[in-house]
Design a protein around this nucleic acid. Structure first.
Lengths: 244, 244
DNA sequence: CGTAGACTTGACGGCACTCAAACAAGGTGG
DNA sequence: CCACCTTGTTTGAGTGCCGTCAAGTCTACG
C-alpha cells in the first residue's frame, strides 16, 4: 500500500539536482499511497477544477493542454515518469489548464496537506519541490523560444532532444532510443503546427538520417547533428547537482 | 537606506493573493536595500551568470530574453514593477536567459542568503514567493498557447489585455490607459512576429477602434471587444485571495 | 474482413516574412 | 538654429513556410 517504488523516479530526479537527506527521502515517501490508473486519452485533471491533491506521474506520458474557443488545442507541457504534473495546483488552486494522459498512465495523488506539511517542516525539501516547478518554467521558456523563433524542423528536433534528455534522467532511454507514445496530431498540438506539417517535418528528419520513428520507438541516429540543428543546449534543464 | 517603499509593489501583489502577516511583511522588508538604476537597453542579468542575489523590479519595465545563433531574439517574459525578474535564479543558479531593461529601471538586488533565510523561517511566505514563480509559469503557458494557436492579431490583443491586468494590480493604470515603453521591434521579439507585421497588427487594432497607442501610452478603447478577440480570461493570473 | 484511427501524399492558398525604401521625431554638434 | 544622424514607424511589393482541404494508404483490432 505504501510502496516506495512509485516515487523512486521523483527521488532520482530531485537527487540529480541536489543531495537529499535520508530524512527528506522519508518525507517524500510519506507521499506514497494507492497508485491509480488513467487510460490513454483520459483526463488526469480538468481545467477549472480545484483538486485537493497534486498528481505524480508514476508511469506513462501525460500532457498539459488548453482548449480554445474554436476547438483547437495547445499542449503546453509533456510529462514523463517522475514528474509532478500539477504541483503548481498546490498553490495556484483552480487549474488554468487540463492534464491528459498520452498513454495509459499510473499516477499517485498526493494530498495537498502532505505537501503543505513538507513546506512547514522541511525547508530544503520545499526548495527542491519549488525547484522542480522552476525547471518546468525553464522548459516553458524554451518552448516559447522555439515557437517564436525556430522553424518547424528545428522545433521538432529540439523537442526530441529535450525528451531524450529528460527520459535519460529517469532511466527510460536505451542509448539514443526511447519510447514516446504520441500521435502526430498530438505532436502538432505540442509544437503549434498542423498535423500534416508534423508529418512532413518528421519525414525530413528521417530523410536526413537524423532519427527513425517506428511506432512508439524513437531512435536518434545522429545526436550531434540533431542537437546542432535544434541549437539544443541542455543547460536550461539544470542537471547539475548544486546546493539549492 | 532600508526604505520600505521599493518593496511596496511586491507586498501589494502578494497581498492580493493571500493575507500576509505583519511578521511576514517585516521579513519582506528585510530585503530592502540600496536601489540601483539600469538604463533602458541595459542588461540586469546576463545568460550564463550565476548571481548571488535575485532582482526585484522597483520601477520601469524589463524583459527576459534568449538570443539564438543567428542573432534573433525571443522575449519570454515582460516584467512590471513589483515583479521579481529572476527569483528562479535563487534555486536554478546559472541563468538560462538574460534580463534586459525595456525602460530606465530601478531595481533592488536581494541577496540569496536573505531569501534562503525566509525559506528556513517563514513557510507561508516561502509559499507566497513560490506562488509568484508559479504565476510566472502560468503566464508562460498562456504565451505558448498564443504563439501556437492564436493569430498575430489575437496574440497582440491578448498581450495588451494581460499587461493591463498586471499593471492594474500594482496601481499603474489609469482606467484603461497605461504606460508601456516598448518598441515595435521589441514587441516583435515578444510575440514571435516580425517588426513589420507587428506594425500592421497594431494598425489593425487601431483601425478597429480597439486601442490607441501614442508614444508609450496605450489606451484600450473597447476592452470587452479586445478581450473577446483575444479570448482573454484572467483566471490564469490567479488574482483571488485564497489560503495558500 | 470490415472498420477506425493513424499516417501519408498532393494541390492550393494565405498569413506572415523579407527586402527595400520612405517618413517621422528627437538629439547632437557645428 | 539648422543640417544631420539615429532610432523608430510606416508602406509596398514579392515570397515562402506552413495551413487547409481532400484523398488515399496502412495497420490494428474485433
Amino acid at each position: 500500500m505504501k510502496d516506495p517504488a512509485p516515487i523512486a523516479s521523483l527521488v532520482r530526479k530531485l537527487g540529480q539536482r541536489d543531495t537529499l537527506s535520508d530524512d527528506e527521502i522519508l518525507a517524500l515517501q510519506s507521499m506514497a499511497g494507492v497508485v491509480q490508473s488513467v487510460p490513454a486519452g483520459g483526463d488526469v485533471v480538468t481545467e477549472g477544477e480545484q483538486p485537493h491533491f497534486s498528481t505524480l506521474l508514476v508511469s506513462g506520458f501525460a500532457t498539459r493542454y488548453n482548449l480554445l474557443g474554436n476547438g483547437e488545442r495547445q499542449i503546453t507541457a509533456i510529462h514523463v515518469p517522475g514528474d509532478f504534473v500539477d504541483l503548481h495546483g498546490f498553490l495556484l488552486k483552480p487549474m488554468d489548464h487540463s492534464v491528459g494522459a498520452l498513454s495509459d498512465c499510473r499516477i499517485l495523488q498526493v494530498p495537498h496537506p502532505i505537501i503543505r506539511r513538507i513546506t512547514e517542516e522541511h525547508p530544503h525539501l520545499t526548495r527542491m519541490l519549488w525547484l522542480s516547478t522552476l525547471i518546468d518554467g525553464a522548459i516553458f521558456r524554451q518552448w516559447i523560444v522555439g515557437m517564436g523563433r525556430r522553424s518547424a524542423l528545428e522545433r521538432m528536433a529540439h523537442l526530441i532532444c529535450e525528451l531524450r534528455t529528460r527520459l535519460a534522467l529517469v532511466g527510460l532511454t536505451d542509448g539514443h532510443r526511447f519510447d514516446f507514445p504520441i500521435t502526430q496530431i498530438e505532436l502538432a498540438d505540442a509544437t503549434g503546427l498542423s498535423a500534416v506539417h508534423v508529418n512532413r517535418v518528421l519525414q525530413q528528419l528521417r530523410a536526413d538520417s537524423l532519427i527513425t520513428w517506428h511506432g512508439q520507438t524513437v531512435t536518434i541516429l545522429d545526436y550531434d547533428a540533431l542537437a546542432a540543428l535544434a541549437e539544443f543546449d541542455p543547460a536550461y534543464l539544470h542537471l547539475d547537482r548544486l546546493d539549492r
